[in-house]
């Protein structure tokens, strides 16, 4: 009599037919992978915004013939460009690079001492763009002061970082989709094996007038429980690994996040608890479809 109430509730014997080992373990593995993929996607997004911002705000301004008089003829070109930059609120940290730095910058292309080649070295100013809008008008403005002045931004580099991030996120999305499909397949296989083990019982229950809704609902309830538990375990197991990866990535993420205990992107803290819920939904839906499909073979 010990098990009487339990057996009454579970007359399909699903506790045995849908055991509590293999399915949850496989779902836990899927959930673990999904957690890693999500963490990768979110972390790359965080780092990318940062790097992209850094790169995009970087300005390099080349002034040819820096000592020649400017358009007004009153001052050397480099000085008047520098003075103009200083008056602009959207430009910060402007600095004239020393001739040594400029030489070092171009030596990979022109050799150790470009001056020996008799090439006129341009004056180079580095600065940071802090304006909200892109620095499109900057080039023409400076050009008026000093013909031939070139403004280069980190936009190209930034767009490369953006492309890299997009491809990383596409990979993560692909992994998530594959993991979801594999999870659905695992659930379908487990459900089919449960159906096969209980074929006699289900056939009888069906003959006694059980509704498809009831039978499918019983399977789906059990599967939901198992996938929920499995995915929760997988997500929890992923936490230390994510913390470790977060610690590895910390130097790249900048000082702001080092304070974080786990050093995980905050969005992940919301996404992780979502994993078991999504897994349970996949489990429920797959079980429902599988059982209903199978029941169709009964009269």
């Amino acid at each position: 009599m010990r098990n009487e109430p339990r057996r009454r509730a579970d007359y399909l014997g699903l506790r045995e037919a849908l055991g509590d080992r293999l399915l949850p373990v496989l779902v836990a593995a899927m959930s673990f992978l999904a957690a890693l993929a999500m963490a990768g996607a979110l972390a790359s997004a965080t780092l990318a915004t940062r790097w992209q911002g850094d790169a995009a705000s970087q300005l390099t301004i080349q002034v040819p013939q820096p000592t020649a008089p400017d358009a007004s003829g009153k001052a050397p070109r480099l000085d008047s460009v520098m003075a103009a930059l200083k008056t602009m609120p959207d430009v910060a940290d402007e600095q004239v690079m020393s001739p040594q730095d400029v030489t070092a910058l171009i030596s990979p292309w022109l050799g150790a001492d470009p001056a020996q080649l008799g090439l006129p070295l341009p004056g180079v100013i580095s600065a940071r763009w802090v304006g909200a809008a892109p620095p499109d008008a900057l080039g023409p403005t400076l050009e008026k002061l000093s013909p031939g002045t070139l403004v280069q931004t980190g936009a190209l580099w930034a767009s490369r970082v953006a492309a890299l991030t997009t491809s990383l996120q596409a990979c993560a999305a692909a992994i998530l989709i594959i993991v979801a499909l594999v999870a659905a397949a695992v659930v379908a296989v487990a459900t089919r094996s449960g159906l096969a083990q209980r074929r006699e019982t289900i056939t009888l229950i069906h003959a006694l007038g059980a509704l498809d809704d009831d039978i499918a609902g019983r399977f789906a309830a059990r599967i939901t429980l198992l996938t929920l538990a499995g995915a929760a375990a997988g997500a929890v197991l992923a936490l230390p690994v994510l913390a470790w990866l977060g610690a590895l990535a910390a130097p790249f993420a900048g000082p702001a996040q080092i304070n974080d205990v786990f050093n995980l992107p905050p969005a992940l803290m919301f996404a992780l608890p979502g994993l078991p819920i999504i897994a349970a939904a996949i489990g429920w839906g797959t079980a429902q479809l599988t059982v209903r499909g199978w029941l169709r073979s009964l009269p």
Partner: peptide, 15 residues
Amino acid sequence: QLSAYDNVALPMRLA
């Protein structure tokens, strides 16, 4: 897997 009692009770439980 069911006792005699539970086997007989099955149609009523389904209902």
